[in-house]
Design a protein around this nucleic acid. Structure first.
Lengths: 150, 150
DNA sequence: CGATAAATGCAACTGATTTGCAAATGCTTT
DNA sequence: AAAGCATTTGCAAATCAGTTGCATTTATCG
């Protein structure tokens, strides 16, 4: 998968290129699905540790600069994904059983399609379209249980 | 605003009419915006207390029966609103400053419009469209600060 | 009215995220 | 390259939403 250059991205955002920021951004840039903080910690660990507080702070700065998007879920765990031209805003599917989040293809979401809904002087800086339900794997498991109980 | 009958709704969902469930449902049915658990606790308090654990459990049962919808936000706080014919699925606006959630008008969201995106055998039971940004009030406050610093 | 299952309250717990502060690092200027 | 200073990071502890276990109360049915 094509992706943004780490250093260019940080420079462009006006963020200094510290080892931690480079590490977190590298993980995000190579991710195939949105990641939780826990996932990022696991994947960064190989190269010399990083504190979870640092990850939270780095993610906050990335989000503030518009480098990444944050996807909230029930269960209070947030996911993060790149918000660059290689990864335009798209819908997600959240499984309420295994609590995994996956990207849905195609259908790019444009803020402009919804801005006419705003009545006051709100400022929009993000849009999220989430389907919630049970993923294929968890449905298989459920079917298995149902069958074995008959 | 027109709204569903409390007792009919509970009966139809197969839930017994306990004082707590009636209280929580009454609050939800009269709410003008989606509510947090904290809001529900505040509004129910007038009539003789209710434990927060009970509220969580009642909301879980309402959600399982499709009586209410749950809206997740960054910051890990969930909001709840009626999911009846008087309140069809619609987009919301979340202010990341004051952390309030408001309903956006018109534009009803139909699951069917997005189901073709699913590739495997997922089951969808909810859909959320959220705009995130800064609400009118918080924008006014920000402008005020900016002006007073010049 | 009594029995029984379901609902509720309470205390304690979990897990994600945040805060305060001291130590380490990055960047600029000698 | 070293000094100076702001920024970043780590650690410990706190916060806060939401959950769990268990004892008590309530609803419903015979």
């Amino acid at each position: 998968m094509e992706h943004c250059d780490i250093h260019t991205t940080l420079e462009h955002a006006g963020l200094s290129k510290t080892s931690r920021r480079v590490a977190v951004l590298t993980v995000l840039v190579h991710a195939q699905t949105p990641l939780r903080v826990k996932d990022i910690l696991d994947r960064v660990c190989g190269e010399g540790q990083i504190n979870k507080v640092t990850v939270y702070r780095i993610l906050a700065s990335f989000k503030a600069e518009g480098i990444i998007r944050e996807i909230a879920t029930d269960h209070g765990v947030n996911f993060y994904e790149m918000a660059c031209r290689h990864n335009p805003t798209h819908p997600h599917f959240y499984c309420r059983i295994c609590r995994s989040l996956s990207c849905l293809p195609e259908q790019v979401i444009r803020e402009s399609r919804f801005e006419h809904l705003l009545t006051g002087n709100q400022t929009v800086d993000g849009i999220t379209l989430n389907l919630t339900g049970v993923c294929g794997t968890c449905n298989l498991i459920k079917d298995g249980h149902r069958r074995s109980k008959q």
